[in-house]
Design a binder for these strands. Structure first.
Lengths: 276, 276
DNA sequence: TTAATAGTGTCTCTGAGACACTATGTG
DNA sequence: CACATAGTGTCTCAGAGACACTATTAA
């Protein structure tokens, strides 16, 4: 007696079936910690103390603990590896190519965080470097970035050059509708400094008058009435960001932080288009 | 002899340390399959055959195989659960609250996909429904959506209402710079149909003249010279999307698909700001 | 006074909103 | 011919780009 024919779904299932499918992947959280220094985007890189890629630079990261959320893991990585807390941080993308880690299957849930030049400088320790990022693509396209240490190109471990490219792409998009620039400056800043941050992110020069108009019209800026000191010539007024209330942690962190299991009722369900 | 004092990092480490930290989470891929029907956004929901949330509707999903990429897993889920291939699909966000699944720790790498009403209708089988989505928030805010089956609210399993909210937020943002509307229509369509799709995504009415101008000026549309048939009154011209070349699969799928491990050279590295 | 940057005024151009208008196919 | 929708013309207004201009401070 012949076996019944296999359905298309059965065949797809068997084709992709493998006993190892029931293993679980490791899950890491990696953070692209971005700052603007000397008019260029820079990211923190940590020298890997062990294989794979021993001695090579990588983004700060760590494995996800079973009791922490992804956002908590990202914040922990920043606190442990750079001693930085309270930064703007947001989930970016999850990288999951099967062979992206040579040891075993490791997913990387990538985050990006923004920090001012001053805090970044204070945070750096001896096995860490700030790498300058060069973006070899324009606009929406996206891709990997090139990382330099000022003299030569640095090949990052794993696919971390892709993660940095994703972070820059996200930053560029976000600049259109969110006040991300403030996260990269100190408590007070001049409009020129803010413009330089935008120029670094976008990779292009901006004109001063429209930039000032946009920023001042956005309502996100408050003039302090104080002026920068120690400049060679006319000092610029210092501004402050209007409302830092909702910038600590991502939206989803707040939504899912205390999310609990609601029982709900087992409705009798009728479909709109179902034909059952 | 007293032990040396613990550093701040040591204390943080010990506080969060737990033997179970070395377990690995399960990783699922869930897909928000979106279509526009009768002027409203709808998503495919599958009735869960087993606990947890037995009998409740959930997004189509499955566990990640150890040999497939995340993008491949998402495409497999669409093929197996809805019989649909070649759709626009893109990674959305990774949901990782520790208790989002009552069984054990399960991360969900969420994707969204777009499909025309016709293909969606053909794909639906007896344990599936199209649910109408209502968006109880405006603009950028984001949050969960409400799902209806036409008569009553449907409580989705897990945090799948959040995933749908994220998908709609992403769609709204993407509408500003990418021609997503075409993914929700057939091969040819009228400008009025395209406008209805945009209106459904944005949740608001648009004016016809500026909408037509924008679409025609974008260069994404090609007039076919043919006209719709069977209309009560004056038939509208049919358009086609200009270039479907780069819309199959996400950017990162293409980038990471064949990514291999490059050996690279172990450069002598000098830092810009490192004080080592 | 000069140098150098801070900050403003204003013109143009583009594109969205708004609305009235013309065009055309079906009954 | 009437109707309903397709499709266009045009006015206004808001905002960006571009550039010249004035203002202010230190040396």
């Amino acid at each position: 007696m012949a076996r019944p024919p296999l359905s298309a779904e059965d065949r797809r299932f068997l084709d992709s079936y493998d006993p190892s499918d029931f293993e679980r992947p490791s899950v890491a959280v990696d953070v692209a910690l971005i700052t603007v220094l000397e008019g260029s985007l820079h990211a923190l890189a940590v020298r890997r103390p062990e294989s794979p890629y021993k001695g090579r630079f990588a983004l700060p990261g760590g494995f996800l603990g079973m009791k922490e959320s992804l956002d908590q893991a990202a914040a922990r990585v920043l606190a442990d590896k750079a001693g930085l807390e309270g930064l703007f941080i947001e989930q970016l993308y999850t990288f999951g190519a099967p062979r992206r880690d040579p040891r075993t299957r490791v997913l990387s849930v990538a985050y990006y965080a923004l920090v001012s030049q001053e805090r970044m400088r204070d945070a750096i320790s001896k096995d860490q470097r700030l790498l300058r990022l060069e973006v070899p693509w324009e606009g929406e396209a996206g891709g990997a970035v090139l990382a330099h240490d000022g003299a030569r190109k640095i090949a990052l471990a794993f696919d971390h050059d892709e993660i940095l490219g994703m972070a820059i792409k996200r930053l560029r998009g976000k600049l259109n509708y969110a006040p991300v620039g403030y996260q990269l400056l100190g408590e007070t800043f001049t409009l020129r400094q803010l413009q330089e941050v935008h120029e670094a992110i976008l990779g292009q020069k901006l004109l001063k008058p429209p930039f000032r108009r946009r920023m001042l019209a956005s309502g996100d800026l408050v003039a302090t009435g104080e002026f920068e000191a120690g400049t060679a010539y006319r000092p610029a007024e210092l501004y402050r960001f209007a409302d830092r209330a909702d910038l600590g942690g991502s939206y989803l962190e707040r939504v899912t932080r205390e999310r609990t299991l609601t029982s709900g009722d087992e409705d009798t369900l009728r479909g709109i288009l179902g034909r059952g």
